[in-house]
């Protein structure tokens, strides 16, 4: 299922620091079509910062990013979107004063004769939300009036609506109930089958074991290592997160 011939994304030796503190230090990870790569690590390990270099929210200080084998410059979120990279941010990045449909299409509104077509956008939003969270009905209120999980559904809908090739999900299920989490898990499997590559930042080790093909572990801004999920146990991964080094039997 995973096409290992050519990586979809390669991030090589990425570094970025904030006022002298190295948030990400020479990290290299890659992603193949149809693959889910988990990114793990303690709070503040640098996971979000690393993927923000790919999504255009931050600009890396050093390193290279290759998409489909070609080096790319991602200077802002528009560049990332143009490369079919979609992101669900940990903070969700929703405009609280706008409704779900306006948020879903923010920056990419459907227009009819130069005028934004709200009715059409709401109809599309209803369709996609119907797949993600069938109980969702609050289409005509600002998203500030939604629950945490409902807001998260809107953020997920926005990332999957626009036919992404590369999907970045930063703790996408943190606020979701068990049913909704299950639906997102199914969605991830479906998107994977369609050949998307997904970076999944996730703290729940069981979800990682269930959904990911490989897992990359970070600690203090550095990459501890990347392992094939099928060849390790959850304890191995936990050991990597906590101890910050690959367990002896894995260190090849």
């Amino acid at each position: 299922m995973i096409d290992r011939t050519k990586p979809l994304v390669e991030m090589r030796d990425i570094s970025i620091s904030f006022g002298g503190i190295k948030a990400v230090d020479q990290v290299s990870i890659d992603l193949f079509p149809g693959e889910v790569v988990g990114l793990l690590g303690h709070n503040g390990a640098g996971k979000s910062t690393l993927i923000k270099c790919l999504s255009g929210a931050y600009q890396k200080d050093h390193g290279q990013i290759l998409v489909n084998g070609e080096e790319v410059e991602i200077n802002n979120p528009r560049d990332a979107r143009d490369l079919n990279i979609e992101t669900i941010y940990q903070t969700l990045a929703l405009a609280d004063n706008l409704d779900a449909a306006s948020n879903l299409f923010l920056g990419r509104e459907i227009k009819k004769r130069g005028i934004v077509d709200d009715a059409k956008m709401e109809a599309e939003a209803r369709k996609i939300m119907g797949r993600l969270n069938p109980n969702f009905r609050k289409f005509n209120v600002p998203v500030s009036a939604l629950s945490g999980g409902q807001r998260q559904s809107v953020a997920i809908a926005r990332a999957v609506y626009f036919n992404a090739k590369i999907l970045i999900m930063d703790e996408p299920t943190a606020a979701l109930g068990p049913h909704e989490t299950q639906m997102v898990a199914e969605l991830i499997q479906e998107l994977k089958a369609q050949g998307l590559g997904i970076f999944l930042i996730e703290h729940d080790i069981h979800n990682v074991m269930k959904l990911c093909d490989r897992a990359s572990v970070m600690k203090n801004g550095q990459l501890v290592g990347t392992v094939d999920v099928k060849t390790v146990t959850d304890d191995d991964i936990l050991a990597m997160i906590i101890l910050g080094k690959k367990p002896g039997h894995l260190a090849a």
């Binding site: 929210a57 528009r78 405009a95 306006s102 948020n103 923010l106 920056g107 990419r108």
Partner: peptide, 17 residues
């Protein structure tokens, strides 16, 4: 739409391209 979005959440507006 972008004016209102920016006012609601400037970071979200920027991240939305």
């Amino acid at each position: 739409r972008y004016i209102f979005a920016t006012g609601g959440n400037p970071d979200a507006a920027e991240l939305s391209g």
